[in-house]
């Protein structure tokens, strides 16, 4: 696995530029993911890699195409100091794991080997031996993620038909 590390305020326009929103299929979104901030990302990213960001990750547009693009690349999760709120709920709603943990962001460098446990919120940097505890999701949010996204959880509750 590889770590892709970026700074603060990674906005949804750089995660997936608007010029590609006219083709919202996963393959197309994945092929342009992070293009304006990291031209090599889409061609080098592999399933299981982890994206690490600073504060306010995913700010800007509400485009769900942004977490969809990252997910479609096979990225295991995004770890950030904080998330912009629409990106945060979009990731939850599509069942894509995100972890809020400022200490982990400071304690992870590109090239490190990192494992994550979504159930406990524990992030381990195997290279440095450090472990970090991400903020746990509320029970309701865990329910959405466990059902594989918002619509499935609403169907399971019998609310959406």
């Amino acid at each position: 696995m590889k770590i892709y590390k970026y700074g603060d305020n990674v906005d949804t326009d750089v995660i997936i530029p608007a010029r590609y929103l006219n083709a919202p299929d996963e393959k197309s979104l994945a092929s342009h993911c992070m293009e304006d901030i990291d031209a090599d990302f889409a061609t080098t990213v592999e399933p299981g890699d982890i994206v690490v960001g600073g504060s306010n990750f995913g700010c800007g547009s509400s485009r769900e195409h942004a977490p969809l693009a990252i997910k479609a690349c096979g990225v295991k999760c995004v770890i950030a100091k904080s998330f912009a709120r629409i990106f945060y709920r979009n990731a939850i709603n599509i069942g894509f794991p995100i972890m809020e943990c400022p200490e982990a962001v400071d304690g992870i460098s590109p090239g490190d080997s990192v494992t994550v446990d979504f159930a406990t919120g524990v992030i381990e940097n195997e290279t440095t031996g450090q472990t970090f505890q991400a903020a746990p999701f509320p029970e309701f949010v865990n329910g959405i993620i466990e059902h594989g996204g918002l619509l499935h959880s609403l169907k399971a509750r019998g609310i959406a038909k």
Binding site: S62, E64, I86, R89, N90, I94, L151, L154, K161
Partner: peptide, 28 residues
Amino acid sequence: DSHTCTYGALGAFSTGVGSTDMAAGMAT
């Protein structure tokens, strides 16, 4: 659309969400 927050000018609670929220909102 993230700029849905505009209607707060009228004393409404309005906020931007993603497409899945829109789908869930349309259904429920």
